[in-house]
Design a protein around this nucleic acid. Structure first.
Lengths: 360, 360
DNA sequence: GTGAAAGCGCTAACAT
DNA sequence: ATGTTAGCGCTTTCAC
């Protein structure tokens, strides 16, 4: 077992070699599982390894290899359950294959995203899992292309001509949300979202709108989208309700009976706006949000949400990435993983509530 | 700028050297900012660097250095806001000093924690920020000691004889919670928590109890603690309420008027138990939890919470770590950072509610 | 079967 | 002021 090698130099492959009375090359072969080593010598090597508590230095080992056994992961943030779970999954899968995952947060900035990518390129990572801030057409993906990096794009992407992509099937999930809301009788629905440029936001909006209009051509769909930050969205939403921006055209004087938020932060903003105005779900207004969170099932009312299949996304992303690392050729694939829609108490029927008698 | 070096070999320091007509050593010196280089040559080096798009390989560079510029961070999980923010902070501070942060999740397992640490030791990281699963006396800290690693312990720790520690001042925050609850008139309070062995849980419980008893010697404090998992805690809590485990001794027949949860997951479990029984905060029962989360201010009622000073903890942890890396001697320090207690709507006065007429 | 030799890309003494 | 030399710890031909 480990000797008192405290903060001293750790045993190197040469220490093992000399203790076992063989050369460093032989030790290396034994560790690589090469069978052409005399069993007797192999045993002596194993003994020496154990006695010295020897472990290979992965960095030094990677120096000499063609591909370094490091995978980079770039996420827009670490603070949400979704990306937290994503990193956890990616880490464990990388680990299983003997790779180390180095995760970094772009903090929702495309500039930082590219910087991080450049640093990962410096590290000569074997591959990158990139969850871009906006979509597949940003500078980060371009950088990867320009430098011949191998990688996979996830989450806020649809498909790409250079990289495999894996994301939730936003359109299908949104269609299901539309079916649910229309089915319950909602005919005036507000869609709120953050990140107009995010590939997924467009897909979610379109998926929702198409299905809703198909099922109920008379449905009215209002949209409040903010580019990037939460506060502008909050302000826009406040204006929407305060100034009665819904108060135009047909259905004048009536506010929406349901809100569909395309992103977790939008759900939070919507809830806080409801609070300000004293509206309760589902009586005063219904709410469904994309992205589930643990707290949504313990609040009162429980909040309806679209659950993204994090494990599947992570799993397929890693599978695709390792396939490319191992040299798989062929056109890039674009996977869409199905979501689950959990209709909870925050969604009701418009007829049930007193809201029509209480336009504001 | 970067040439079409696609997936080719990237420019090495020798490429730069020969292009600039100097030796590799000179290039290295220029990049290190050594001033003894003839300005003319320095300029040629800069030109060559730019033309070739050269960037040092941090791995190769670290091979030759005494200390590698890598910091390891081990967190119990990545899924919560707290650790998500922590990693984000640590990452940006490491980056500022030119280090790379390699974060890993122990997934609340001490066995994994030690494995990860061993791997980080293999990586010869310059230092480790360890947020142990339980406390400072676990196997991971022992491993660090045994191997002379330099590191800092954060979060679920109080103080240690070998490592600097930084954590929230749990006892002080809990004392404040006690003052608030007692001040509002609560005299029967249930404390729930997860991770009996976590250093912080003891500190929180003791801090709360001491102050509560001091202010109101007649207060009754019940405790429901589960070792490690959420489900046992849920079961215990259910039993507590169902079987009237509070229904003994003095105050028989009355259930607690307030719940103080020592951990985020405990808050979620408490809320879901309240839901099951149709209890609303604060009328039927009051609730405060350690650990704030974004959603707590948008639900109805908003949930009172203790906010941990993530930035301060991260900041002091990194400062202490880098000081040690740079050779600072001296006995380990133990910092406690003050928390903020946000009393929100979930806490009321027991007199206001109908609960005394509604013992179960 | 095994080991010597040649690096991976870089830095740090030591010469000059 | 600069270059030469000698590695960091490992892997990998390629002779033996």
């Amino acid at each position: 077992m480990a000797h008192r090698q405290d903060q001293q130099r750790r045993a190197s492959i040469h220490d093992v070699a000399s203790r076992a009375g063989v050369s460093a090359a032989t030790v290396s072969k034994v560790m690589a599982g090469v069978t052409t080593v005399k069993p007797e010598n192999a045993q002596r090597v194993f003994d020496a390894i154990e006695q010295l508590g020897y472990r290979v230095d992965p960095l030094a080992s990677d120096m000499r290899r063609a591909k370094r056994r490091i995978i980079g992961a770039i996420m827009p943030e670490f603070e949400s359950e979704f990306f937290g779970q994503m990193v956890t999954q990616l880490e464990s899968m990388a680990e299983q294959r003997g790779y180390t995952l180095v995760a970094a947060s772009s903090r929702e900035s495309e500039a930082r995203e590219t910087e991080i990518l450049a640093r990962m390129h410096d590290w000569r990572v074997a591959g990158v899992v990139l969850a871009p801030v906006r979509n597949e057409h940003g500078p980060a993906a371009a950088f990867m292309k320009a430098n011949g990096m191998t990688g996979v794009l996830i989450d806020r992407v649809l498909c790409d001509d250079a990289f495999d992509t894996v994301s939730a099937d936003s359109a299908a999930a949104s269609a299901e949300v539309a079916r649910e809301l229309i089915g319950k009788g909602h005919r005036h629905i507000l869609v709120v979202g953050l990140g107009e440029q995010a590939a997924t936001v467009r897909a979610r909006l379109d998926g929702f709108r198409t299905t809703a209009l198909h099922l109920a051509p008379d449905v009215r769909i209002d949209v409040v989208l903010a580019e990037t930050d939460v506060e502008p969205l909050r302000a826009q939403l406040r204006d929407y309700f305060d100034k009665g921006e819904f108060d135009r055209g047909e259905g004048r004087g009536k506010r929406p009976t349901a809100v569909y938020s395309l992103f977790l932060k939008g759900t939070l903003v919507a809830l806080s706006e409801f609070r300000r105005r004293g509206w309760h779900c589902p009586n005063d207004i219904s709410l469904v949000g994309f992205d589930d969170a643990e707290w949504m099932q313990v609040t009162w009312p429980a909040i309806a949400a679209v659950v993204q299949p994090v494990r599947q996304i992570a799993g397929h992303a890693m599978a695709a990435l390792f396939a490319r690392i191992e040299g798989e050729e062929g056109p890039p694939t674009a996977r869409l993983e199905p979501c689950k829609v959990l209709m909870r108490e925050s969604v009701g029927s418009p007829a049930n509530g007193p809201h029509s008698a209480n336009p504001r």
